[in-house]
Design a protein around this nucleic acid. Structure first.
Lengths: 115, 115
DNA sequence: TGCTTATATAAACTGTTATTAATATAATGC
DNA sequence: GCATTATATTAATAACAGTTTATATAAGCA
């Protein structure tokens, strides 16, 4: 007999989904990569230099961001140019607000009620 | 001779700060705890039951959230009641928007420019 | 073909962290 | 004081993730 969560919000699949996305962007290198990509696409060697990390490490983190759907890649010659996926960022912002948005706080907090 | 990041945004201390906070909330159990606390304060045993996790685990995650300043605790008898810290959540939302807000995307993306 | 450059992949190492089990603390009531 | 309840802490385990080193792929060029 296995226990089940009794809080509805705790069983919300969107929460699990958001936590996975947050895990991806919570690595400092990856968050810094995202920051730089707001200014436009960058190739791996630019990320490497811009963040002062090794080439395999830059490639690895870009790969994680790509798997998560946050960035996409365009190949040109021997170079790979990475850029943000605007829709993914919009979705991330939306889900963050929906789950952790400050507007969810009641005027009088804390209070006790069912969840 | 050590290399230094050449991207200003990559050296931004706020980015490092945000990544640390995201790491705290990216754990699924902790994100679920935060969700339930939006409805009001909860004692450890309520969190434990509500999420179907063990008592020491609930206590541990609440402790991590507390160290991060996201929740605070009120002791009453043998019980500990945890609640959100509204200011911390507001700050988190603000920094998230400042660094990852969709408004930062230029109308025409991707484009190439200095960062 | 061979050489260089850019990127990706694989393996190994390391450090971190979630989780569990066991134990300790601290308050309450008999 | 003793037993019970709620919570916190500690130690041990196990899984995971970031990093480095080494190697592979693949395009461009002489």
């Amino acid at each position: 007999m296995e226990k089940k969560p009794t809080f509805k919000c705790a069983a919300n699949p969107e929460v699990k989904e958001l936590s996975e996305m947050l895990k991806v962007i919570s690595d400092p290198s990856r968050l810094r990569i995202l920051c730089t990509l707001f200014f436009g696409e960058k190739c791996v060697c630019e990320v490497e230099e811009g963040l002062a990390i090794s080439q395999p490490l830059a490639s690895h983190h870009l790969g994680v961001l790509r798997e998560a759907g946050l960035v996409e890649v365009r190949k040109e010659g021997t170079s790979s140019y990475y850029s943000l996926v605007p829709e993914a960022l919009q979705k991330l912002n939306r889900e963050f607000r929906e789950i952790l948005g400050e507007h969810k706080l009641p005027d009088r907090y804390p209070e006790r009620s069912r969840c």
